[in-house]
Design a protein around this nucleic acid. Structure first.
Length: 483
RNA sequence: GGUCCCAUCGUCUAGUGGCCUAGGACAUCACCCUCUCAAGGUGGAGGCACGGGUUCGAAUCCCGUUGGGACUGCCA
């Protein structure tokens, strides 16, 4: 008894779509549930317009980054064109196909606004000779019904009479998706077809093709189990589209999402682990996943929730792992991979690893995305405080007490012990002289030194920044405010 | 238009006829913690689309209505 053979069959598009990632993930779950399960990657590149070798590399790379390398593949559908053409001939000889010379314009025109579904069967009985301008259509049975035994949705019955005579082969002789896909699934001995719901309407056609192929070739391959996953939608409840929605997995990598967080979040779209805990390791998903439990309705891809989960994953990293994970953003010169945008405003020369290492634990519990680290620690590694002008105006320029406090801080900071606790006490005392509580008193100092109103804990930051640079920044802020 | 799919808090979901006073998570609000911001903790508000059945009993089963979506290509 051999295990399940599943396939992930994306068409190359130049980036890796999150919806595809979710589909791949669920396929992968099924494969990993059996010791001898096979997860196969097949690139459906039969459309010449979408066939670029680097796009294939992109898919493979993205999948590798996410953590699921295929057990077999990547295969390319175009490598099987001979088999596809042979299948076309088999079907034609078997009488399942007929030539059609209609252009799509003609079909649409005849259709007008009547209720005929799709193609009207115009050439079905016209004995149109095969030629360079004739495609081949499938002679759909007029009687009976085709049933998709969907693992998720149950039996989906389609009357054959409403299935149009769909095109199977181009005038060039090349097989179209519906056939090529079936031929490859047969050859690859696929046992479970797990794909997006958008494929549900053409599944009856593929079952018809599958049966016809078994008849004409004399090779009967069991029809696979089908499972159609609910699609992922945007806020408008429309299918996620690359035009409007941020869907590229690569862009999430750039932003600083961790693979484990992405996968965990994706696993929750249409499915959920048992119990009340949503943050679960992949091993638990593999153990518990069942196609029968996948929900039927579309799921909104909620970036906020994924970001929150990413924060949880970041926080549970060990200090070493956090440093390593942050390297592409913080110390890109040490990292093989860097995000495509957002290089830090510092260089290897102006950077101080000891400072970063010391402040990292404080940062780790404050970010949800790795990309948020840079603006948070920027002030350590650039020559002048990176001022947020609005914050400066509010907390320093337009606040007399704040400027007075900064003036007085020069003396205090000049000779107090340079530790976070002493600095803390110093600012408290300073505030008292001006009747400011610590909340109020720390604000101008923070802004003067870091340029911002928010950031890592101030006194630890001052300690790490050092006495001289702190004094320098307070002076600069005072000068800037004095105008 | 046609075919098909779908319908539990704003969102993702648990729920498979009594355990439901419908549970969890994100988001949101309040409070606690607190040097800012987060994180964390506690608590609150918030949902079974509607109408009929079936049943002693329905979020759960059936029918209809309404609403949403996918598909409708010599794309995949």
């Amino acid at each position: 008894m051999s295990g399940p053979r599943v396939r992930f069959a994306p068409s190359p598009t130049g980036y890796f779509h999150v919806g595809s990632a979710r589909t791949a993930l669920f396929n992968w779950f099924v494969a990993r549930q059996s010791p001898d399960g096979v997860f196969l990657l097949r690139i459906e590149d039969t459309d010449a317009d979408r066939n670029r070798e680097e796009w294939v590399d992109g898919i493979v790379a993205a999948m590798h980054w996410l953590g699921f390398d295929p057990d077999e593949g990547p295969f390319r559908q175009t490598d099987n064109t001979d088999a596809h053409r042979a299948a076309v001939e088999d079907l034609f000889r078997g009488g399942y196909l007929y030539p059609c010379a209609c252009t799509s314009d003609e079909v649409a025109q005849r259709k007008g606004d009547n209720k005929t579904p799709g193609y009207d069967g115009y050439c079905r009985d016209r004995d149109v000779p095969r030629g360079p301008t004739t495609g081949l259509r499938f002679r759909t049975p007029r009687e009976g019904a085709t049933i998709v035994h969907d693992k998720i949705r149950g039996d989906v019955v389609t009357e054959n009479a409403v299935i149009e005579d769909f095109v199977v082969a181009r005038s060039s002789g090349a097989a179209l998706f519906a056939l090529a896909n079936v031929v490859d699934d047969r050859n690859d001995r696929i046992t479970h077809v797990i794909r997006g719901e958008e494929h549900l309407p053409n599944t009856p056609k593929q079952i018809l093709l599958w049966e016809a192929l078994s008849t004409t070739t004399g090779v009967t391959v069991p029809i696979p189990e089908y499972a159609h996953l609910p699609i992922l939608v945007n806020e408008q409840r429309k299918k996620l589209s690359k035009r409007r929605d941020p869907v590229a997995v690569e862009s999430y990598r750039d932003a600083g999402y961790l693979p484990a967080a992405i996968l965990n979040y994706l696993s929750l779209l249409g499915w959920s682990p048992r119990g009340d805990e949503e943050k679960v390791p992949l091993s638990v998903c593999i153990e518990q996943f069942r196609l029968e439990d996948v929900s039927h309705s579309p799921a909104f891809f909620d970036l906020k929730k994924m970001a929150h989960m990413n924060g949880e994953y970041i926080r549970e990293l060990s200090p070493e792992d956090f440093l390593a994970a942050a390297a592409p953003w913080v110390t890109p010169w040490t990292s093989k991979w860097q995000p495509t945008e957002g290089a830090p405003p510092w260089t290897q020369e102006t950077f101080d690893f000891a400072v970063w290492e010391a402040v990292a634990p404080l940062v780790q519990e404050r970010v949800a995305l790795m990309g948020e680290i840079v603006p948070m620690i920027e002030f350590f590694f650039v020559s002048e405080a990176p001022f947020d002008e609005a914050a400066f105006d509010k907390t320093i320029r337009n606040d007399d007490k704040a400027r007075e406090l900064l003036s007085r801080s020069l003396d205090v900071f000049g000779d107090c012990e340079w530790t976070s606790s002493s600095l803390h006490a110093a600012v408290v005392a300073l505030g008292e002289t001006l009747e400011l509580n610590l909340r109020k008193a720390q604000a101008p100092v923070r802004c003067a030194v870091t340029g911002k109103t928010v950031g890592p804990p101030l006194f630890e930051s001052l300690e790490l920044l050092g006495r001289e640079r702190t004094l320098q920044r307070v002076r600069e802020a005072l000068a800037k405010a004095g105008g």
